[in-house]
């Protein structure tokens, strides 16, 4: 039995307090999603599943969830193909602009989303793409490509370069080498990147905000609902998002690229 240590206790207490600060608001949302009352105040008088019922009736919100999911799936799929191909190219070849390119692809991840959103808003109409879901999908895909690229590229950098050479020496074609040697090695990075991409797309606001026209994505719909006044079904939908995020996170920690920064 260790003796009581004031300093250790303080650190532990502080750590716990911070953890509480991070989780308290989210717990509140989850708990209050079962509040039967319209006003979110303390204490809760009655518990009920009422707002989940209201939620199921809210067609606009459900449509926006569907739209978000589809954008996420589509954006992730395209980003995986283009991003992985690009990572492969950058891994295999050296070219003058490589350093420059490595920095460019970091921009959409590091720059404030509002900048990217407005840049796209200003330029897309010149390409004949007016604000619409199409524009939103392109916007999402752009930063998802960058995300996949950085993640997969990071994995490539840690790969044993001789593996592929060995495969080639043993007479396999580049195509075979890719499928039999390279892909299995980057598989987990790809799975991790796609989960992260999907979650980020599902949550994206700043870029979407400027490119959206008629059909809202889920976060934009929630934002609009909040702007029009607080409705308690936001608690319910938030709880559902919370659970989805939790599952995605657990999966991604299992597969993910832990050594690289995910942001």
């Amino acid at each position: 039995m260790k003796k009581f240590d004031a300093l250790n206790f303080m650190t532990g207490f502080l750590a716990f307090a911070v953890m509480f600060f991070i989780y308290f608001p989210m717990l509140i949302v989850v708990i209050y999603s079962f509040n039967a009352d319209t006003v979110n105040s303390f204490p809760i008088k009655h518990f009920s599943l009422k707002w989940y019922g209201v939620l199921i009736q809210n067609k606009t919100l459900l449509t926006s969830l569907k739209i978000s999911a589809l954008i996420g799936i589509f954006g992730t799929a395209v980003a995986l193909v283009i991003g992985t191909m690009g990572a492969l190219a950058m891994h295999k070849h050296n070219f003058k602009l490589k350093r420059f390119f490595e920095r460019i692809v970091l921009l959409p991840i590091t720059l404030p989303g509002i900048l990217t959103g407005i840049a796209m808003l200003s330029f897309f109409p010149l390409l004949g793409i007016s604000i619409s879901l199409t524009a939103v999908v392109i916007g999402h895909t752009t930063f998802l490509i960058c995300l996949v690229l950085t993640q997969v590229y990071a994995r490539f950098k840690r790969l044993d370069p001789y593996l592929e050479e060995a495969a080639a020496d043993l007479g396999s074609t580049p195509w075979q080498t890719f499928w039999k040697v390279t892909l299995p090695n980057i598989k987990t990075a790809i799975i991790g990147a796609s989960l992260l991409s999907f979650t980020l797309s599902l949550d994206e606001i700043p870029v979407t905000f400027f490119l959206i026209a008629r059909d809202n994505t889920l976060p934009i719909e929630i934002y609009t609902m909040l702007r029009r006044g607080i409705t308690p079904e936001v608690n319910a939908i938030s709880t559902i998002i919370f659970i989805i995020s939790l599952i995605a996170l657990i999966l991604s920690v299992k597969f993910g690229e832990r050594e690289t920064k995910i942001i």
Binding site: L133, T134, I138
Partner: peptide, 19 residues
């Protein structure tokens, strides 16, 4: 659903023509 597929088609189209 349909709308999104349309958008996807539109992107594919935009992309091919643009490239």
């Amino acid at each position: 659903m349909q709308k999104l597929f349309k958008s996807i088609a539109a992107i594919a189209l935009a992309f091919t023509t643009l490239s």
